[in-house]
Design a protein around this nucleic acid. Structure first.
Length: 457
RNA sequence: GCCAAGGUAGCUUAGAGGCGAAGCGGUGGACUGCAGAUCCAUUACACGUGAGUUCAAAUCUCACCCUUGGCUCCA
């Protein structure tokens, strides 16, 4: 299995640090507002990655942070006149609900920044002790000049960095030095050896990953926009603190989601939250939409594209229902089995080849559609046995499991309301009786009788 | 300016030296009491432009055009 590594800009054979265990960390949301469909794209993608790694036999520990202390939260809380912690908890809960509806279930543990202050402080202290950080009257800063490899992920040189967009802080040694600890005199704040304040943005992730994974682990993921400066800062912090390199073996980044060709932003008025989306479309459809583009490519959101996804997904489900129905009454063995087995083998193999190639879900989906077409063609005049049908269904189950679709329930979902059904039957029987179709109306009565439903005319 | 991702059929997406690919859509058939599902054909001269390398280029090289994003808030 190959995975594209942002660090090397190449697909590399995936090898976990442990024979069967994989440690996966993905940057989580800042919970100051509802998550948008760009977040959904990223988290669906990594959910698929986790599912596929597990299918390949790995035991994956998928860890995600929740940024529940941050300027945006503080500002929003002040605007609304509410407690920042309550605000963060509220949007964290809404985030979890959104993820559930999208079928994103792979995260094993969510770590809140505010619950890891001890670890954050310890890590900052280590950086100070080793000379990678310094204290000013405003806070504690990472000293970029002590980490010459800064920029290795984003391929930037320190001297190229255009820093005049941010306000200069004359207390910092270099303009690019970033805050590890920000001193504050009003809430929310936490005690630290450098006085009360709160952690900088980048430090929570490395504190959390060190806590659960140690200084080195397998995969770190996030959106493309986090490469610089966030992930660059994480590398600088962790590799300096531990003296071990690399912090992670594989850096994976998801492409952006655009809306009708433009970046999604509040000012453009094309900002779509997951909740807005789910009012009109099932999570599964959005999931299909996301997975029909490669995770690293930009994806363009539009209602038309969602309609297409709805129909494409329908085609797959139709096939699964067809196979399930056939398998109920198929013979145990048959002469056409070899042929169906060959079809299955061919496209199944193709499917996994594409998944092994840096999670190429669009190509893997194409293999599934090819399988469907071949099966439909063959089913016109050939009959597979139950055994073969079940093998095919098993593949579709694996497929659903990897992609996070819910095909299994197609047959087990109970009919909405039996009384409604009965009413339809009785209405039709009444019409038959009016037409004096006694034979059919009697058949309905007797068959309902067999089900212990008695009709009294 | 620097960094990055792109431009592939009507639309949405894969591919990355040699079989013109998947879905959706359009058109015409087959099947069908009607509808749906499905199948076949077609849409089809698919690869931004111009050169170059090669027996062979959508794919490699160079130049250029266009789109989007990032450059210390960002999934």
């Amino acid at each position: 299995m190959n995975i594209y590594n942002t660090m090397t800009q190449e697909k590399e054979p995936f090898k976990a640090r442990h024979p069967v265990r994989v440690k996966l960390f993905v940057c989580g949301p800042t919970v100051y507002d509802d998550a948008h469909i760009g977040h959904a794209r990223t988290y669906i993608s990594f959910d698929m990655v986790k599912r596929y790694l597990e299918y390949k036999g790995y035991s994956v520990f998928y860890l995600q942070n929740i940024t529940d202390i941050d300027d945006k939260i503080i500002v929003r809380a002040e605007e609304l006149g509410v407690d920042p912690e309550k605000l963060a908890r509220k949007f964290e809960k809404r985030y979890q609900e959104d993820m559930e509806k999208l079928g994103v279930s792979g995260v094993n543990f969510h770590a809140r920044a505010t619950e890891h202050l001890d670890k954050i402080i310890t890590q900052i202290q280590t950086l100070l002790d080793k000379g990678f950080a310094y204290e000013t009257q405003k806070g504690v800063y990472f000293d970029e000049s002590q980490f010459p490899e800064y920029g290795k992920l984003s391929r930037r040189k320190l001297e190229d960095l255009n820093v005049h967009r941010i306000q200069q802080d004359e207390h910092k040694k270099n303009p690019g030095d970033f805050a590890l600890w920000k001193k504050r005199d009003h809430k929310p704040l936490w005690d630290s050896p450098w006085g009360p304040g709160r952690p900088g943005w980048h430090i929570e992730d490395t504190a959390i990953t060190e806590e659960y994974f140690g200084p080195q682990y397998d995969i770190h993921g996030g959106g493309l926009d986090l490469i610089f400066p966030h992930h660059e800062a994480e590398i600088a912090q962790m590799e300096s603190a531990s003296g071990k390199s690399p912090m992670v073996n594989f850096w994976m980044h998801t492409g952006f989601l655009n809306v009708s060709g433009e970046k999604m932003s509040k000012s453009l008025g094309n900002f779509i939250t997951i909740r807005d989306l789910l009012e009109n479309y099932p999570g599964e459809v959005f999931r299909f939409f996301v997975l029909s583009t490669h995770y690293r490519s930009p994806i363009d959101f539009s209602l038309k594209a969602l309609e297409q996804s709805t129909k494409s997904l329908e085609r797959i489900k139709t096939m699964v229902v067809k196979l399930q129905k056939l398998s109920l009454k198929a013979p145990l063995e048959g002469p056409d089995d070899v042929m169906f087995q060959d079809i299955l083998n061919e496209y199944q193999e193709e499917f996994f080849q594409h998944m092994d190639n840096d999670f190429n879900t669009p190509q893997a989906l194409a293999a599934v559609f090819n399988l469907i077409r071949q099966l439909n063609k063959s089913l016109e005049n050939k009959n597979p046995s139950q055994k073969t049908l079940n093998k095919i269904l098993r593949f579709f189950n694996d497929f659903a499991e990897i992609m996070g679709f819910q095909f299994k329930q197609i047959f087990t979902t109970p009919v909405t309301n039996p009384d409604d059904l009965l009413e339809i039957i009785l209405d039709i029987r009444e019409k038959l009786r009016q037409k004096k179709e006694w034979e059919l109306s009697d058949e309905i009565r007797s068959r309902l009788n067999n089900l212990d439903i008695e009709i009294q005319d």
